[in-house]
């Protein structure tokens, strides 16, 4: 049901864009207004979400680590698993963000004959996730050729590496194949694995199907259909220099507007969805804090200013009683 609703939503978006720019002729709405609104919602929503997160106090370090903490000098410790300082924490973050190290440690428990509980390492999600994210990043960077003039060298180099096999004309991109394979895995995983299907919500299916829609419409534009891509770039450059090009708006076909509208939906939806893990990964307290629980003193930031009472204060309060009882005060 969740999957069906999400699927129908994405199909609805495609139809809206196709009808809106085909029959209704609303090119200005879909080519200028919607992209600007989407970008604005994305930027403001992203910053707002980060600020909300930053207002949540993290009073102590959460050492959910898998390694030996730095302790006595003769005990070997694991700096990446249990970093004691800023440098090693930075390395742990780099590995987490670029290599998804937490997913790599995924294990799966199974009951076997016996009954016997068996744990085994499962790398499929790590592999599928890694391929998907890297392919997505490279595809986004590759699109810079539509938004920069002159096209920077690294974008052109990426383009050549990506089309390395020189199959088809224009060349088939390796990242396009990779992201389709990874997306197929990520969709099938939600459908076929009962535990994953049980916890899958519409908020899981919708972004997944939306990204599938973006990739398929993009691949359709490159490999199957032809659109005037000079007009596409003129449209992109016009948008980012705040002088939208009316000729370019009419020069691109409805199939391009479908792709653009899906992308706009994705980025506008981004700050309100689980996709915010793009920013959230940098703010995860179990990853970005050094485990210095014992190395340094941590004071809870919202502790009320406690005024302590010393022994001297106490003696001052009760000095008469003490004198009456015949004791001699230390300070005297």
């Amino acid at each position: 049901m969740n999957a069906l609703v999400s699927f129908l939503l994405v199909v609805g978006l495609v139809l809206i864009a196709a009808a809106g720019t085909g029959a209704a002729g609303l090119q200005t709405l879909f080519g200028v207004v919607v992209p600007y609104v989407a970008i604005l919602v994305f930027l403001l929503g992203f910053v707002r979400r980060i600020v909300i997160w930053a207002r949540a106090p993290v009073p102590f370090r959460i050492p959910t680590t898998a390694g030996q903490q730095k302790a006595l000098d003769f005990l070997p410790y694991q700096p990446l698993e249990n970093p004691p300082g800023a440098g090693t924490t930075f390395l742990r973050m780099v590995l987490e963000v670029l290599c998804f190290r937490s997913l790599f440690r995924n294990t799966r428990a199974e009951m076997r004959e016996g009954p016997r509980l068996v744990y085994a390492s499962r790398k499929w999600l790590w592999l599928g996730g890694l391929v998907f994210h890297w392919a997505f990043l490279l595809i986004v960077l590759r699109h810079l050729r539509f938004f920069t003039e002159p096209v920077p060298g690294f974008a052109e180099a990426l383009e050549r590496v990506d089309g390395f096999f020189e199959v088809l004309l224009p060349e088939l991109y390796v990242t396009d194949l990779a992201i389709l394979v990874a997306l197929t895995y990520l969709v099938l995983r939600r459908f076929l694995s009962p535990p994953v299907r049980y916890i899958s919500q519409a908020a899981d299916y919708f972004p997944l199907f939306l990204i599938v829609g973006v990739v398929l419409s993009g691949a359709y534009l490159r490999y199957l259909s032809r659109t005037d891509i000079v007009a596409v770039k003129a449209l992109g450059m016009g948008l980012l220099s705040f002088h939208p090009d009316p000729a370019a708006l009419r020069g691109v076909g409805a199939q391009f507007y479908v792709h653009l509208f899906l992308v706009c939906t994705l980025i506008a939806y981004f700050p309100f969805s689980k996709l915010m893990h793009l920013g959230g990964v940098f703010l995860s307290p179990t990853r970005n804090l050094a485990n210095t629980n014992r190395l340094t003193r941590h004071v809870n930031p919202w502790n009320p200013p406690l005024k302590g009472r010393t022994f001297e204060d106490w003696m001052e309060d009760f000095k008469e009683e003490i004198a009456q009882a015949g004791y001699k005060l230390e300070r005297d």
């Binding site: 810079l144 938004f147 920069t148 003039e149 002159p150 920077p152 992109g236 450059m237 016009g238 980012l240 220099s241 002088h243």
Partner: peptide, 14 residues
């Protein structure tokens, strides 16, 4: 990046 890069390069209208 595309906005400031293109603004610096000064060829947005090209």
């Amino acid at each position: 990046f595309p906005v400031w890069y293109s603004a610096l390069a000064g060829r947005t209208g090209h």
